[in-house]
């Protein structure tokens, strides 16, 4: 949908999608009873540290985006979808949109021995990222 520059800057930006992304992380942290950081940079860091904790929020945002598409509310649809794109860009994961739901592709450096799974499943993204971090490159 959109090409981003520095992902963390986009996350801290003023656009609607960035605001939705920040709300998603903030809400996720509140739901898990974790202290919510004050600055946007800290918020981005909290997401990057353990993104798998926000799977619920991401899935819900994608569902809401799909529902918005169904009722022709394209501003809402774009905002929710781009929010997820912004968040995943923080992790060097690129989204493609073959349909209403995205596929994920890790675009960062991959150490030898790590097999990057591409597809619709968030859990595959998380396991790829965990494995890459375990090898010390992400």
């Amino acid at each position: 949908m959109q090409a981003y520059g520095d992902p963390s800057k986009v996350f801290c930006g003023t656009g609607r999608a960035a605001a939705v992304a920040r709300v998603l992380v903030r809400r996720g942290m509140r739901r898990m009873c974790l202290p919510v950081p004050e600055t946007n940079e800290e918020l981005a860091e909290a997401f990057i540290t353990a993104p798998w904790q926000f799977s619920d929020g991401i899935s819900r945002a994608l569902q809401e985006s799909a529902k918005a598409w169904e009722r022709n509310d394209h501003a809402e649809e774009q905002a929710k979808a781009e929010a997820v794109e912004i968040l995943m860009a923080l992790l060097n994961v690129k989204l493609d949109w073959p349909g209403l739901y995205p596929t994920y592709k890790y675009t960062g450096k991959v150490p030898a021995g790590v097999y990057v799974v591409e597809g619709y499943q968030l859990s595959h993204v998380w396991s790829t990222i965990k494995e890459i971090r375990e090898k010390g490159q992400a």
């Binding site: 353990a50 375990e134 010390g136």
Partner: peptide, 13 residues
């Protein structure tokens, strides 16, 4: 309780 232990640039969750 999630732990992320780092030893020599390697992370273990």
């Amino acid at each position: 309780v999630t732990t992320c232990v780092d030893e020599g640039g390697r992370a273990f969750y």
